[in-house]
Design a protein around this nucleic acid. Structure first.
Lengths: 225, 225
DNA sequence: ACCTGAACACCGTTCAAGT
DNA sequence: ACCTGAACACCGTTCAAGT
């Protein structure tokens, strides 16, 4: 049965196959996530990419959910954290959150997954630490800053998911929304039909910036300056 | 093989089994969703509850995603919509959004599912129509109102998911967060550790009300009153 | 026209058996 | 110590065959 000239699945097939490791698994999973999204990210698919069986992954990773947490950690870790500057804190908040949003968008589905069970890892804490510091540098009160960090998180996740949707079918979605709004009977939906243009106005970037500014303005209004 | 005295799976086993219908499927699915959450909501499980096979559902429902949309529609449809009153518009926004949030919380997982692909059904449009009307009644400008509706949607979904997490393990989560924050090294996380109390302060209701108010205050600040 | 039940192509996870 | 591969208990969806 042994055929020396054509060994089945020999290690020589692939150039210097790296040994299995937690990092190799994370890297393989990230590649799949980036190219095909969360739906395609199965333990079996990751294992296949590493030329092994799904069961082998469990030595290094505590199941799929733990893998997702590791991926989220890695992704959040790539976001550059500005050192709080009271003069430019507001723009720093914008760039921090836009950076997080973009990192999430690059890995379709991870934002939604992270929302369902939010990771409390050190990397996530580092980002929260930074965001809180920026808000406090802006003169926002302690309790307000803490709650505002939460509000802003919601906006980041929401913007990421929305952007992912538009990326998969950029024109299709926009057109669909427009027609849906236009098709509505004006008698029953007077407000929507008369505001259809405003509802679809602005790209992701613009709307995101607006949302952050509205939240910051709102919380600043209750901080005696 | 036929045994008249003990027929296998006879219709007489269950009292007056209702014939399969789209509505029956939706009702069965809602019951599963309420009791066991989205994770337990499989086509097979719904079929079993209706004493039939999973394949039979496809006559009335275009697959699982379509079923989820129908469920979301039903849930959103239960929210009572106030008729806009310029005098009490703000409180009306609160009650509308709190109503939606609570309806979502009652059906664990549906908020996250709806976020991933937002339904553009008539029922959802009716809620948007109402919300937009309330914001306009509050004197918010056209473009601001349109974008603010989106911002508020994000807060509702976020609050619902957060509340669902706390519901499954009310004390466990709160305790875990506290200890996670407390365990952090103060040297590396000076802001978080010194604001630990503020970060976990407030229940879901309080934080939600705060978020809505911050957003409304922020958008009102850019509307010349 | 509707339902059944088997089949197809997948899942995550476990675990005995090998090396 | 690590990996394999089969097994278990699930999925969504399709479709020939029945009634």
């Amino acid at each position: 049965v042994t055929e020396p000239d054509r060994p089945p699945r020999s290690r020589r097939d692939r150039p210097a196959k790296a040994p299995l490791s937690r990092d190799a698994i994370v890297q393989a999973a990230l590649a799949i996530l980036r190219s095909d999204g969360l739906g395609a990210l199965s333990m079996r698919r990751v294992a296949t990419a590493l030329d092994t069986g799904a069961g082998s992954l469990y030595v290094y990773v505590d199941g799929r959910d733990a893998l997702l947490e590791a991926l989220f950690d890695h992704i959040v870790g790539t976001v550059t954290l500005p050192s709080p500057d009271p003069a430019g804190w507001r723009e720093q908040v914008h760039s921090l959150l836009a950076g997080l949003r973009d990192a999430l968008i690059e890995h379709p589905g991870i934002a939604a997954a992270a929302m369902v069970d939010p990771p409390r890892t050190e990397v996530s804490m580092r980002l929260l630490e930074n965001l809180l510091g920026l808000l406090l540098a802006g003169g926002i009160g302690d309790q307000d800053a803490a709650w505002t960090a939460d509000i802003l998180s919601a906006q980041v996740t929401y913007a990421a998911i929305e952007a992912e949707l538009r990326r998969t079918e950029p024109d299709a979605i926009a057109a669909e929304v427009s027609t849906t709004l236009a098709t509505l009977p004006p008698a029953e939906f007077p407000v929507i039909t008369s505001h259809a243009a405003a509802l679809v106005a602005g790209d992701v970037e613009h709307r995101f910036r607006y949302a952050i500014d509205v939240v910051l303005d709102g919380v600043l209004a209750r901080t005696p300056s």
